[in-house]
């Protein structure tokens, strides 16, 4: 999902290997899973590496906007929940890096590519979390949109990615609920609290809808990803489902969704919604969002500040291993 916004050049079909290709095609046609040691077309491998890596990067960068509120959570209960949620996102990143490595890439390389700006993460995390209500809006809308995408990915044709998604989906539903609860509490509090909740929803609604990626007619690689069973539903299909699901939830919250064109369409059996600002999406993805620079510099600093811990642990492991050898030799 987070990898929907493709920036690389179109994929070229593989030459040769026609027998293995036929076997691969048969597995895909039979809705079977591809496993790490199976032969797979280079383009399939490259597409997955890019998508799973972007997804992993999104999970760990996504720790920042909310992590920013841990020290300012309004109660001990909220604080404990937020710590657990942010820790889960770190865990999601680790499941996904682990899945990505089964495709033959090295974790250090993936981090290098993120830090060097050669791989991207979801545009949504370049928006700031300005108020406590934003933590609620992120849980309800951002995790909600992520779940919609990730549930679809549980049936992805690549086994390790699909299995990581199943784990992640099990953990996500609490994320969305805690966000909904925060907003519900604020929306039923003082007028100022309700206003804060409405303001957060106003700012996060459109960016959350853009998490599903560009409209289908502007999403060039979608068809190939669908043919490979990496994607099971189109960007617009998932976005529509999310809109349909969110409208009644907003009513329960007593908050409005910031789209004057949002209305039920009896004929289609779905809600219609207004155009999204895809120029903004392109700008934010390509580095010009409100927080891109801050997210990257904090990420790189955290990595560099942690270097001594990694080195110390490695030195300790080496020393213990040498001791074990000595004892064995004596």
């Amino acid at each position: 999902m987070y990898g929907n916004h493709d920036t690389e050049t179109a994929l070229v079909p593989d030459e040769g290997d026609s027998e293995r290709q036929a076997e691969f095609d048969a597995l895909i046609a039979d809705d079977q899973r591809i496993e790490p040691r199976d032969w797979m077309p280079d383009a399939y491998r490259r597409t997955l590496i890019r998508q799973v890596a972007q997804h992993a990067h999104s999970e760990i960068i996504g720790m920042q906007p909310e992590g920013n509120w841990i020290t300012r959570a309004p109660s001990l209960r909220r604080k404990a929940i937020l710590i657990a949620k942010v820790q889960d996102e770190g865990g999601h990143g680790l499941y996904l890096y682990s899945a990505c490595e089964t495709l033959g890439v090295d974790r250090e390389d993936l981090l290098d590519r993120l830090h060097g700006g050669r791989q991207k993460y979801s545009s949504i995390f370049n928006y700031p979390a300005l108020t406590w209500a934003d933590v609620g809006a992120i849980g309800w809308l951002v995790d909600g949109a992520a779940i919609m995408n990730q549930v679809a990915l549980c049936r992805c044709s690549y086994g390790p990615y699909a299995r990581a998604m199943i784990r992640i989906c099990k953990e996500e539903s609490f994320h969305q609920r805690q966000g909904f609860e925060i907003l519900h509490t604020l929306a039923h509090g003082t007028p100022a609290q309700k206003e804060m909740a409405q303001d957060a929803v106003n700012r996060f609604w459109a960016p959350a809808l853009m998490m599903f990626g560009p409209p289908d007619d502007a999403s060039p690689h979608s068809a190939q990803s669908m043919a490979w069973g990496i994607k099971r539903f189109s960007n617009d299909e998932l976005r529509q489902r999310f809109v349909d699901m969110s409208v009644p939830q907003a009513e329960v919250l007593g908050l409005s969704l910031p789209d004057p064109d949002l209305r039920w369409n009896d004929e289609r059996g779905h809600y219609d919604s207004g155009e999204l600002d895809w120029d903004e999406f392109a700008r934010v993805i390509s580095g010009d969002g409100p927080c891109n620079a801050q997210r990257m510099s904090r990420r790189i600093r955290a990595h560099e500040d942690g270097a001594w811990v990694r080195e110390a642990a490695q030195a300790y492991a080496a020393k213990q291993a040498a001791r074990t050898l000595e004892v064995a030799a004596s």
Binding site: G104, V105, Q314, A317, A321
Partner: peptide, 13 residues
Amino acid sequence: QNPAPNPAAGNGS
């Protein structure tokens, strides 16, 4: 999970 040739674990110094 791991398909890639992997250097010996345990002595990654």
